[in-house]
Computed example of a mutant assay.
Amino acid sequence: MKKILHVLNTSKLSGAENVAADICMMFDGEYEMYYCSLKGEIENALSNRGINYIPTNKLSIKELKKVIEKYNPDIIHAHDVKATFISSLVAGDIPLVSQLHVNQDDMKKKTMKANLYLLSSFKVKEIIAVSEGCIDDFVYKKFIEKKV
């Protein structure tokens, strides 16, 4: 059974976190799912849903590398810009999927965040966006639109 590691940079349950948790539950039995995020109140919500939870102190290259070495995922599914960037640095040959959950103003112009996402996108195999606006408004749309 293939292992999928979901990576998020949050510790609370909100929109993106619910989506990641729902994905884990929907494909339970088809894939071995792991939800990796910052330690926090999210733990109870994931435990109540029966989701494999991997808490980290912070989302860093060092910590994510340890998680990858321990769980050896077949696919990494990163659920925000920072998670995508950090994952792109440590994924190696593991296919990386990025999911954009919001249309952020700081992705509409050439900012550090937009630049880092652009760099990450060269490692990303597929991009999932919750709306067309997430992609249409991205300052570097022309570089990523074929992966969406």
Rank of each mutant, 00 (worst) to 15 (best):
A129K: 04
N103R: 05
K146I: 10
L64M: 10
K123Y: 08
P95D: 12
V67D: 02
F85W: 09
K109A: 10
L89Y: 01
V124N: 12
N52H: 11
E30L: 12
G92K: 09
L100H: 10
M26G: 13
T111C: 08
V67P: 02
K65C: 12
M25N: 14
E30W: 07
I144A: 06
G15Q: 00
I127Q: 11
G29Q: 11
K147H: 11
Y140I: 03
N9K: 01
Q99Y: 10
K3V: 03
V102Y: 15
I61P: 09
F122P: 14
A83R: 07
K3T: 14
G40H: 04
F138Y: 05
F143Y: 15
E32H: 04
Y53P: 06
K109M: 09
F122A: 10
T10R: 14
S121F: 03
I135D: 07
I86N: 02
A78D: 07
K82S: 07
E17W: 05
M33T: 07
I4P: 09
N57L: 14
N72A: 05
L8K: 04
L5G: 05
I61A: 11
V148P: 13
E69W: 05
F143P: 06
Y31A: 08
K142D: 04
K82F: 10
I127V: 10
F138N: 00
C134P: 08
S14P: 11
P55L: 02
R49W: 00
M26P: 08
L100C: 13
L13E: 03
K2Q: 15
S121K: 05
N52M: 01
V7G: 06
K65T: 15
D93L: 07
K58H: 09
Y35W: 04
P95F: 00
V97M: 12
L13P: 06
V19T: 08
I94V: 11
I144F: 01
